[in-house]
Nucleic acid binder design. Structure first.
Lengths: 343, 343
DNA sequence: TACACAGACTAGAGCGCGCTAGTAGAGCGC
DNA sequence: GCGCTCTACTAGCGCGCTCTAGTCTGTGTA
C-alpha cells in the first residue's frame, strides 16, 4: 500500500498506525492479558488492514523456543501421509507449529533432518527412519526425537509403534481358522517393523506345526516388491508348484502390488489366494472388495508421537519411552477360507 | 559438553574458542573471502568440535532474505510426491532452502500457505492448488507464487503445467487408430487440469464424428472416484448396456481405481476395455502390465516451478508467466485394439 | 622515510520480535 | 491528603546472526 515499497509490515508499523507501543501489539498478538478489549480490537483491525503477519523467524529468535516440531517423512510412503494428517491437529492443539522435510531418492534422511534442525525445530518426529542407530541417537542428543515404527535400541529416542507381533498373530490365527496352511510371508527387508513381523510370522507357523510350510520371501515396503513377489510365485506355479493359499504382505503397498500381479494373471483373490496387508493406509478400504489388513491407527500414533515430543521438550531428563498401540485385524474382501485342495 | 547446560552453541562460542571475532566466523561460514586459509580451517574445526550449527532463524532475520521456498502440497497426491522429489535438487542448485507444508482433510490450503509465509518463505510453489482464484491472487501479491497444474486466471501467479489438450489428443488419436469408438472420459471435477482435459476429450470425439458417443462421467482425482466410475459402468452392463471399449481417466489415481474395479469384476483390461491414465505418477509403470498414461514430466515441471519462483524473486516486476510442457503418451499394457463387437 | 594498498580481521548497528521491569493513572480506604 | 492496589500501557535489552564501515598489520613503491 505504502509507496515506500513492498516491505512486509512489522509490529512497529502496526503499533505506529494504532497509536500504541510495540510491546502492546506483541501482547495482543500473543493473546496475553494486559490490553483492554477496545485496544485489542483496534490493533487487530489495524494489523489486518496493513496485512501484518507475525514473523516467526523473529519470534522464534526472541523467545528462546521455537515451539516447532519437525517431521521427517519419506516421499511416496502412503502411511506417512496418514500420519502427517494426524500430526497437524494434535500439534496445533498443543500450540506447536509443524515443519515438514522429505527424504527421497537423492535426498538422504540426514539432509532432511539437518534441514529441520537448522530451522530450529525443537523436536523431531521421524516417520519410519532408516538411518543408522548411531546417527539417530546423535539426533536424540541434539533435540527431542521420536521415532515412529522403527525401534532404535540404546538411543535417546522415543518410540511409537504398534505391537507388530500381535497384529501378525491375529492375522495368522484368522487364516489358520479358515483352513489355511500354506501361508507365505513377504517381508519388509530392513523396513520399520518388518523384523518383528517376520519373527511373529515364523512363531505363528511354528505354533501351528507348520514349520515345514513356513516361507519368507525377501521384500520391501513398496508396490514393486509386491509385484515382484507375485511374479515369483506365478513363475513357480507355471513350473508346477502350487501357489500358497494365503500371503501375508509386509505392508499395504506390498499387498497392493501383489494383488495387482495376481489378479492380472487371472488368479482370483480371495478364492484362490488370500492376501493380508499391514498398515491400513487410507487406500486399503478403497478397493472394491477392500484389503484385509492389520490396522495401525495412524491418527493415534501421530498423537502419541506429538505428545512424546512435547513431553520430552518439557522434561528433557525423561528416559526414552515407548508407546505400543494394539493393532487390529480388519477383515475385508481379500481373505477367504482356504481353497479345497489336497495338500 | 559444558557443565553450563545444553544450550546450543552460537557463533560467539565458536569465536571465543577460536580466538577470533564473531564477524570473522560469520564470514567463514558464509564462505566469503576475507579469512586466511589457516584461520578458516581452525575455525571450522573448532565449530565442529563444539557442535555448532548456524541458526537459520537468526540468519534469516539478519539478512533481509530467507532464500527459502515454500511448497504446498496435498497429502496422498502421489504426483505431488513426484514433484517434491524434483523440487529439492533444483532448489539446492540455486541455493535455496525448501520448506514443506501439507494440505489435508482438516487442514485447509490457506492454513498450509500461511504457515509457509509466516516462516518467511520468499516464494510459494503451490502444487495443484484448489483454493479460490482471488485468494491465490492475494498470495501472489504477498510473495512470488507459482501454481503447478492449476491455471489461475488474472492473478499474479506463474503457472507451470503440461499441455493438457495435447496429451488428451495423443491418447485419443491412439485409441481411435486402434478402432475404439465408444470411449468414455472420467473427468477430474474441478481438479487441476481437468477442465482442459475434458474439453480436449470432447473436441477429439467431435473431430472423429463421435459426438453421439461422447460421455463424461463426473469424477475426481482420487482412487475412490475411479472405483465409483467402474461400479457405475459395471452396473450399467448388468442392465444390458455395453461397456465402453476404452476409458480415459482424469488421472492415474483414478485410472488405478477404475482398473481395480474392472479387473475384480472379471473384466479383462485391455482385452475388453482399454484404460488410459494421466500423470505418469511413479506407480504407473509398476503394475505388471503397466498403465498406459500421459506422461507429465514431474522433474521438469518441478524445475520450471523453482526457476519461475527464483526469477520472480530476482525481478518482482515480471509479468505472470506460463510454462507449458509437452506431455507424451506412454503406451504400456492397459490399452489394446478395440474388441470386435457390433456397434 | 613516507605513502598507498592490499589482506586479515573487528566493532557495532540492526533484523522483528519477546519479555522483564518498569510507569502512569484510576479507584479505594483511611 | 497519603499510601495502596490494579489495570493499561511503555522502554529497552537481547535472541544469533549479517553486513557496513571501519582498524591494523605487512609489503611494495616513490
Amino acid at each position: 500500500m505504502d509507496a515506500s515499497g513492498k516491505q512486509r509490515p512489522t509490529m512497529a508499523d502496526v503499533a505506529a498506525k494504532a497509536g500504541v507501543s510495540r510491546a502492546l501489539v506483541s501482547i495482543i498478538f500473543r493473546g496475553q492479558p494486559g490490553a483492554s478489549e477496545g485496544t485489542r480490537e483496534r490493533v487487530l483491525r489495524v494489523a489486518d488492514e496493513i496485512g501484518y503477519r507475525p514473523d516467526s523467524a523473529a519470534r522464534l529468535l526472541a523467545r528462546g523456543r521455537s515451539r516447532t516440531l519437525g517431521v521427517m517423512f519419506t516421499v511416496h510412503q502412503t502411511f506417512h501421509a496418514d500420519l502427517i494428517q494426524g500430526i497437524y491437529p494434535e500439534a496445533e492443539r498443543l500450540g506447536y507449529d509443524v515443519l515438514l522435510s522429505a527424504a527421497a531418492p537423492g535426498r538422504s534422511e540426514a539432509k532432511a533432518a539437518e534441514a529441520l534442525l537448522s530451522h530450529r525445530c525443537e523436536a523431531l518426529i521421524l516417520l519410519g527412519p532408516d538411518a543408522e542407530a548411531a546417527y539417530l541417537d546423535g539426533l536424540g542428543q541434539r533435540a527431542a526425537t521420536v521415532s515412529v515404527s522403527r525401534r532404535v535400541p540404546h538411543a535417546r529416542v522415543d518410540f511409537v509403534h504398534s505391537a507388530e507381533g500381535k497384529g501378525v498373530r491375529q492375522a495368522m490365527e484368522y487364516l489358520v481358522e479358515r483352513g489355511h496352511r500354506r501361508m507365505v510371508h513377504i517381508d519388509g527387508g530392513r523396513g520399520p517393523g518388518s523384523a518383528e513381523r517376520r519373527r511373529a510370522y515364523r512363531a505363528a507357523m511354528r505354533r501351528h506345526g507348520l514349520e515345514s510350510e513356513a516361507r519368507v520371501i525377501a521384500g520391501e515396503h513398496t508396490e514393486e516388491s509386491g509385484i515382484e513377489a507375485g511374479r515369483l510365485l506365478l513363475a513357480e506355479r507355471n513350473r508346477g508348484q502350487a501357489l500358497p493359499t494365503a500371503v501375508l504382505a509386509g505392508n499395504d503397498r506390498c499387498a497392493w502390488g501383489l494383488l495387482m500381479a495376481l489378479t492380472r494373471a487371472g488368479v482370483d483373490v480371495p478364492r484362490d489366494v488370500s492376501v493380508v496387508g499391514y498398515d491400513d493406509s487410507h487406500l486399503s478400504h478403497l478397493m472394491p472388495i477392500g484389503l484385509t489388513t492389520v490396522r495401525q491407527d495412524a491418527a493415534l500414533m501421530a498423537q502419541y508421537a506429538v505428545r512424546f515430543a512435547v513431553e520430552r521438550l518439557e522434561n528433557p531428563e525423561l528416559e526414552p519411552r515407548e508407546a505400543v498401540l494394539d493393532p487390529k485385524l480388519v477383515v475385508r474382501g481379500t481373505t477367504d477360507t482356504a481353497p479345497k485342495t489336497l495338500t
